[in-house]
Amino acid sequence: MSVTVTRRPRRLRTGYLLLSLVGALIGLAFLLPLWWTLVNSLRPGSDTFAFLNPLSWQTFFTLSPNLDNYVTLLSGDLGRAIGNSLFISVVTVVAGLLICAMAAFGLSAIPFRGRGAIFGIVILSFLIPFDAIAIPLADMFRDWNLQNTFIGLILPGIGNGMAIFLIRTFFLAIPTELVEAARLDGLGWWGVFRRIYLPLSRPALIGAGLTLFLFQWQAYMWPLLMGTDQNHIVGPVALSNLQGQFNVDYGVMFAASVILTLIPLLIIMICQRYFIQSVSTSGLK
């Protein structure tokens, strides 16, 4: 992954050490709040503030980690809320990827008049940020009786201009000669989409899938407006509701934070390479 390949070893060595040190310090600083969250999730809530004044090694480590908080979490309402988040996000990714990839294909592979205008609509729709129009949309959804339904929570996530844009950029790099050849061999447009574009675009699809997933997983305002009853409340909203209460079990709160972070984290870690590729290169270069 490294870019700079200097051919002078002596200069490299000092720079190498310095860069390594700075890189490590910054990395650790970014890790710190999460690490603290993790450690606190593994010990009783009463210990959260026990080791802060003054700071000691015990602030960031515990000798008796246990999963009690997680057990409490998963058997409670908060666990259910996290399950709701998971369901909403997975459905969004599957439905959203299909719809967005199809749209990207229509915008990149098939030349037709008015393509520019339609691409303009896509761009405009992603320039109008979702959160900005969430309040009028919530008003509309209430009229359509979609409040406190999973459909109401999922729908806004599946038509994602950003995902369309990402996939389209990748699709545009696929040579038109390839399409022409396939068409001459008698492959229909759906076949071109299904057999040529989709398999060649895995990195873009994974990147776009990640975008769709994170949109839903990180959503806060929309679920706050749309689904706050016990059966539909999502993890982040349920967690932040703890915030205002008097007797907060900090251990459980941190455990929920860890799970809500760990799930997207694992997905990002697995997809990281594809994600970066989807932003930068086309597989055909």
Binding site: L17, L19, A24, G27, F30, P236, M253, L260
Partner: peptide, 27 residues
């Protein structure tokens, strides 16, 4: 740049992007 554990330290910086805004606010 080429440096010791560069990829690892980089992951640590990327790590917080997994934290949903509401969760980061709570933390």
């Amino acid at each position: 740049r080429r440096a010791a554990g560069s990829g690892f330290w980089r992951s640590l910086v990327i790590l917080p992007i997994a934290v949903p805004p509401a969760v980061s606010a709570v933390i």
